[in-house]
Structures are given as structure tokens and as C-alpha cells.
Simulated assay, not measured.
Amino acid sequence: MSVKTETKLKVEHVKPKIGSRILNTKEELLSGGLREQLRDELEARGILVFPQIHFDDAEQIAFTRTLGEYAPEGPDGGPSKITLDVKENPSSAEYLKGSLYWHIDGTRNEVPILASLLSCKVPSPKGTGNTGFSNTYAAYEALSDEDKGYYEELRVVHGPWASLFYYEPEPSLAKLKGMQAIGEKVLPLVWKHKSGRKSLVLGCTCHHVQGVDHLESARIIHGLREWATSEDFTYSHAWEVGDLVIWDNTGTMHRAEAYDPTCGRMMHRTKLEGEEPWAFD
């Protein structure tokens, strides 16, 4: 009589409050048997790093499907190319400049994506082009009870146009209008999740806090970003060819760290469809 053995997640914590390194084989990951363990680890740790797993595009899609509903975004339904090189990415390289600053994806959507999976095909020269991550669950949980009570009542207007001023302080009126046409959305500063946990909703798409003085609004937005991106809550991943990283888009911020757009840095991204809408406490 054979006994079925469950595949166990092989994991190392990267830092106390963010990040886990997953050491299972490609075959174990593609089997789908680790789905629940991986999802639990992702929610708990914010990001999962798969060192030099070397998924090709088909394997990355297949692995993404083991974790939830695949959200196709490339023109052929495959992974999208993430690069600032206008030759490789002429349609969105300009828009991706905003990715150099802390943000959460999908702040205009009713249901933001659950997670992104990014694999490294060509890294930038060492010392540049890392991807930074901030655990906004952990950042919220480390606040004082007084601060939690204050921030939970606040609402913030988000718009992609607000990020424009981070990389182009004096845009043309036409460019500003084009970015504003994308739209904006009012979101909670503190997102209460179905799990009962709470995370901060921050980033370069924040424009202002509703109902407070503009000076106080700026202090809240930038002060909390500074808090959430401090050493305890952040991890910067130095890419090697074949690395894959997953981040929980509902409880982290991320950013690409500066690199030469002409260096050839190339990432392939897949996404998981969102599973819960923004929620106010």
C-alpha cells in the first residue's frame, strides 16, 4: 500500500519582517502541490524569492496558474516585457518611469491585482536596477495604537497623474492632461482585508488626504511612506539571471531602482487576478 507524501515548502526568511527565499525544485513548484503553502507564505511575508529558478515564459505562466487566476496582459496572452528601453518597449517605456518610485499597482481598479511575478532575463550592471519592496502590512502593524486609530479614518485621492511629477517636475500641459485622463480614485489609507489584517495604501499615486489641511496631508503621505520604506520593512533584490520574485500587491509597495535604460535590463511579468476589492475600515 503506497502512502502519498505531501510536498513541503522549503523556505528561508530573508529579513525578520519581509521576504522569504523558496528553495523547492522547479518540478515541485510546477506540480501545483505547494499552492496553499506558497499563498500563505506570500501573505505573511510580502514577497517570495525563487533564486535562479530559470522559468521560461510557458513555465512562468503555468506556475502563475497554480497560484490563482492568471491575468494575461501581453499582446499574445504571454508575459509582458518590463524595461525602460524604448526600443524594446516603445508603447509603455515612458509610463514605466513612474515605476522608479514606491507604488502599488492598480490603484484605479475596483479590485487590484493579487500579485505580480517578475523573472529576470537580463539584469542591469551590478549595483543598479534592483527592485525594492516594502511590507505595508508590517509597517501598519508596527504603528502605535493612537496612530492606527487616526489613520484608519482617512481617505486618500490616488491618480497616476500624481506620479508624473516625481520624474518630470515641469511636464507640458498636454502630457498632464493625458495622464489625468487616465482617472483617479479615492482609497482608504488603511485597507482592512478579508483576513482581518490591515495594510497601508501608499505610493507615488497619492495626491492628497481628503478633509485635512494641505500641509498636514503632505506630512501624512510622505511621513508614512518614509516609515513604511525604512530598513525594518524593506528588502532590495539584486537580480541574477533566472531569478523569479512574487510580491503580494495587496500588502506591499515596490519600485525599480535606478538603472541605465539602454543597458538591456529585461524582466518578464505575469500577474494574478485580484480577489478582493479595496475596503474601508
Results as ranks from 00 to 15, higher is better:
His207Asn: 08
Glu27Thr: 08
Gly98Phe: 03
Met253Ala: 03
Val3Glu: 09
Ile18Gln: 02
Ile61Val: 07
Glu257Phe: 13
Met266Arg: 06
Met1Cys: 09
Ile221Phe: 12
Ala58Leu: 04
Leu215Ala: 04
Thr270Tyr: 07
Ala218Glu: 05
Leu202Cys: 06
Tyr235Pro: 01
Lys148Cys: 12
Gly196Thr: 12
Pro72Ala: 14
Ser144Lys: 00
Lys97Val: 03
Ser116Val: 05
Thr107Asn: 13
Gln210Ala: 12
Glu88Cys: 05
Arg21Met: 14
Asp213Ser: 05
Asp147Trp: 12
His214Ser: 13
Cys206Asn: 00
Cys263Phe: 07
Val186Cys: 08
Leu176Ser: 08
Ile246Lys: 01
Val111Ser: 04
Ile61Met: 03
Arg269Cys: 07
Lys121Tyr: 12
Glu275Asn: 03
Gly178Cys: 09
Pro75Lys: 14
Ala258Ser: 08
Thr262Pro: 01
Tyr166Cys: 11
Leu154Cys: 04
Ala138Val: 03
Thr136Trp: 01
Glu275Trp: 05
Trp161Glu: 11
Leu117Asn: 06
Thr234Asn: 00
Thr250Glu: 04
Val157Leu: 08
Thr128Tyr: 10
Ser199Lys: 09
Gly223Asn: 11
Gly223Glu: 05
Leu23Trp: 07
Glu146Lys: 11
Ser236Lys: 11
Trp227Leu: 00
Pro123Met: 06
Ser124Met: 04
Leu9Thr: 11
Pro75Ile: 08
Ala139Met: 04
Leu38Thr: 03
Ala58Asn: 11
Gln37Lys: 08
Ile113Cys: 07
Glu146Leu: 04
Leu143Arg: 03
